[in-house]
Nucleic acid binder design. Structure first.
Length: 423
RNA sequence: GGGUCGGUGCCCGAGUGGUUAAUGGGGGCGGACUGUAAAUCCGCUGGCUCUGCCUACGUUGGUUCAAAUCCAACCCGGCCCA
């Protein structure tokens, strides 16, 4: 999409994959129902900030960088003076968004949903300095946090039937996910059809002017427009951002694919994961996760990769911690093999749970560096384990007591380190 | 509701009575190499302080000296019919 295609401020336009409706800029009077630029101008003229909707279903406990691109965009709207309406999908989380799913999602209990919601808000920066936080929680009028159970749990059957009457089975089956599943004989539960209506109804309930979402949300966002029109409201705009590829560079970033970087990860692991994302996605990461001016970065791919990793880490942890993480990563990985590792900042692991005397393979699992003692045994035999830079070759090597290990750095592969501390 | 086919380890998928944690592929992890990577090559890939012992082929029972493999019931799913 060419820069300036929608005549939006750079901060709002950066990285946008799709914006609809997108009426022609030329021609008759700018139409505030068809062009976002016109709607923005109208908002400014009338002194009425836009209501920008972003819904999240609290189905997990961690927010990762893939989610953050939407929050970054939401923040950009906040910074431009608009109202972010963050919808916690406490009701819809219990149905599960079928988008992108090849199977029916497990339904969550109300308690689990509420607990997840709380950690989400915390990760988004509730109660934190707006400079460092992802969203601005403190400036008055810039944020509304709503739960969709507010309006959804009160719908009665006649109302639900009214909603369902707005669309057709044909339209539902035209949705890619449903079409794929139906076509391949994978089950689709009927209640999953309800999801788009409920998400759409959220837009009605909060009188959304614009909804943010990933490109896979087009169907649901468009449904919001249909419902708003049905209920006599001015339909929202849809602004879609790309789905961030995960660390594998191929599939979308998703916890279940274990290719994520969590927002609250420590600086070192955040940096070292990011500095080795595949070349193919570095530009996308730069565009979507940083504010760096792409043209001014060095051309060398390795340098761009590092600049990206540094910039993202800085946003979350500050400049100092980010630089430290960069230095540590260089020491640990690039490695004046081992000797430097002892000095670098490394997450600690307690020996409290270890029963001595401890055999090497048992130690690895007891300390949490390997998932099981069997795995630890294999890793040692495979030559992937070092203690203070020296290869541990014998899985049965016995350590008599904690004192022998205190302060040493246990390393698995190239990127997993734990400094052992007495419990 | 009726008919029919099917449910195997993270995923896909072999395997139809008997040396075996269970062929093969994918993914993942580790090693070498490199710009950290990618590509390539090699190793590992149920659990347990482990020269052995557990637990595993939808569930529960049964037949057998012996079952993922045979039988029964049940649960779940696809397709066809209603």
């Amino acid at each position: 999409m060419a820069r300036g295609a929608w005549e939006l401020p750079q901060a709002l336009e950066r990285g946008v994959a799709d914006l609809f409706p997108a009426g022609q800029a030329e021609g008759a009077a700018a139409d505030a129902d068809q062009q976002l630029a016109a709607r923005l101008a109208e908002a400014e003229r009338d002194g009425r900030p836009l209501r920008v909707k972003l819904g999240i279903d609290p189905t997990g406990s961690d927010i990762h960088l893939g989610h953050s691109i939407l929050f970054r965009k939401l923040r950009a709207f906040q910074d431009a003076g608009h109202t972010a309406v963050l919808i916690i999908g406490d009701f819809t989380a219990r149905i599960g968004d079928p988008t992108g799913k090849s199977a029916t999602r497990v339904q969550l209990s109300a308690e689990a949903v509420e607990a997840n919601a709380a950690t989400y808000l915390q990760q988004l920066g509730q109660g934190q300095d707006p400079q460092r936080a992802l969203l601005d929680f403190s400036t008055p009028g810039r944020l509304e946090v709503r739960r969709n159970s507010e309006w959804l749990s009160g719908l009665d059957l006649p109302q639900v039937i009214e909603l369902l009457g707005i669309s057709t089975v044909g339209q539902m089956l035209a949705k890619e996910d449903f079409a794929n599943r139906y076509g391949s004989g994978t089950p689709i539960s009927l209640h999953e059809f309800l999801y788009p209506f409920l998400q759409g109804y959220d837009s009605v309930a909060i009188r959304s002017d614009l909804e943010l979402g990933g490109t896979d949300q087009k169907f649901n966002v468009a449904m919001g427009r249909d419902l708003q029109r049905h209920f006599g409201q001015r339909p929202q705009f849809g602004m879609l951002l790309p789905i961030l590829p995960g660390l594998d560079g191929v599939q979308k970033m998703s916890k279940s694919l274990a290719n994520t970087v969590g927002l609250s990860e420590d600086p070192l692991s955040m940096y070292s994961k990011l500095e080795k994302v595949p070349d193919a996605v570095v530009e996308e990461y730069l565009t979507l996760l940083t504010d760096l001016e792409l043209a001014q970065l060095p051309a060398n791919p390795r340098e761009r990769q590092k600049a990206m990793a540094l910039a993202v880490t800085r946003q979350r942890h500050g400049a100092e911690a980010a630089l430290q993480a960069q230095a540590d990563a260089a020491t640990l990985v690039g490695g004046a093999s081992g000797s430097g590792a002892a000095d670098a900042e490394v997450p600690e692991a307690s020996l409290a749970a270890v029963n001595f005397p401890a055999k090497a393979f048992y130690l690895l699992s007891a300390v949490g560096i390997c998932a099981s003692s069997s795995e630890a045994r294999r890793q040692i035999q495979g030559g992937g384990v070092k203690l203070d830079g020296e290869k541990l070759a014998d899985p049965n090597h016995e350590f008599a007591d904690a004192a022998a290990l205190q302060g040493k750095v246990l390393q698995l592969g190239k990127k997993t380190f734990r400094r052992l501390v007495a419990g």
